[in-house]
């Protein structure tokens, strides 16, 4: 490689840092949404780079479904402490207790969809005018059309037909009172880019991503963790399985994959060889072909 040529990872890093700094400059009260998953960990890492040697000038917000893996919460608290940033927890349990949302019932009950209400409320009560997140365009068809700076109306809704054109690297964050933006600094990264970057930067991750033994059962071809928060049918037998998670979300809708990959190198080999998408293990996307688009219009991340 020539002396004045960036590798693609360095170019993506530079782009993301630029976007994060632009958010800090254009908005009064931005926040970084943090799920404890690898994408939001990478975003927080990039934010650290963007403002070094100063601290990250905004808070992190976690929308906690109450059905998170205990490993995620443990990791989150340690991570936030080391970073020295403020953490805000918006709780879905609170929204349920206050009667703002109703818990789903039955075998496929999940709190994933309820997150939207809690997220929007978290944005509103804290008066955040921009919420950054680790969504990537390669994840899902509807996300492929997101801008870096995605305008939301006062109801937090996304209008895919009325998106602002985004030219060069000039981001238009102008808005009226009460409106806000979602910003996606790693829009242009793929799952592979994220893993390579984690390896190159030696970024720490929750243990869930690495191969381990776990009590699981199989539902509709997806390996699910046998936790109390998922109601099981009699036919769904629990067994110890050697698994890891490709994405980390709510326990009720995050499936595991069979894997022996216990190091970043092995995960990367596995990702390179794998033939299904990351979100293929997410039952929330499978409800209908336009599932993601519908949730996004309502304000889902």
């Amino acid at each position: 490689m020539q002396a004045y040529n960036l590798t693609h990872l360095k170019e993506l890093e530079s782009e993301a840092i630029y976007v994060i700094r632009e958010v800090a400059s254009q908005f009064e009260n931005p926040v970084l949404l943090f799920s404890g998953g690898k994408d939001s960990i990478v975003c927080a890492h990039l934010a650290k780079k963007a403002f070094f040697p100063a601290k990250i000038p905004f808070s992190l917000m976690h929308v906690d479904t109450g059905h998170n893996f205990p490993e995620t919460i443990e990791f989150r608290d340690k991570f936030v402490k080391e970073l020295g940033v403020n953490l805000i927890v918006a709780s879905v349990q609170d929204s349920i207790d206050q009667g703002k949302v109703a818990e789903e019932k039955g075998y496929s009950a999940s709190r994933n969809g309820l997150q939207t209400v809690t997220l929007l409320e978290g944005i509103e009560t804290n008066k955040f005018d921009a919420a950054m997140g680790g969504a990537r365009r390669d994840e899902e068809k509807a996300r492929a059309k997101e801008r870096f700076f995605s305008h939301r109306d006062e109801f937090g809704q996304w209008d895919p037909k009325n998106q602002r054109p985004e030219l060069w690297n000039i981001f238009n964050g102008m808005k009226n009172y009460g409106e806000n933006f979602r910003v996606f600094p790693i829009s242009n990264w793929t799952e592979m880019d994220v893993w390579q970057y984690i390896l190159a930067e030696k970024i720490e991750l929750p243990s869930l991503y690495f191969s381990h033994q776990r009590d699981c059962f199989i539902r509709d071809g997806v390996v699910m963790y046998a936790t109390d928060v998922i109601e099981r049918r009699d036919s769904e037998k629990v067994e110890k399985m050697q698994v890891r998670f490709r994405t980390i979300g709510d326990m009720t809708c995050t499936g595991a994959v069979f894997s022996d990959a216990d190091s970043l190198e092995k995960i990367i080999e596995e990702v390179a060889a794998t033939r299904t998408t990351e979100r293929g293990t997410r039952s929330d996307d499978k409800r209908s072909e336009a599932a993601m688009e519908d949730r996004k219009k309502q304000g889902y991340f």
Partner: peptide, 23 residues
């Protein structure tokens, strides 16, 4: 594969910039 949004699928035409990635 690339016709992302539902309205496009219904009309059978692409109406917005969609970003795709491969290596």
């Amino acid at each position: 594969l690339t016709d992302g949004l539902r309205s496009e699928r219904e009309q059978g035409i692409t109406i917005d910039v969609a970003y795709r990635y491969f290596a």
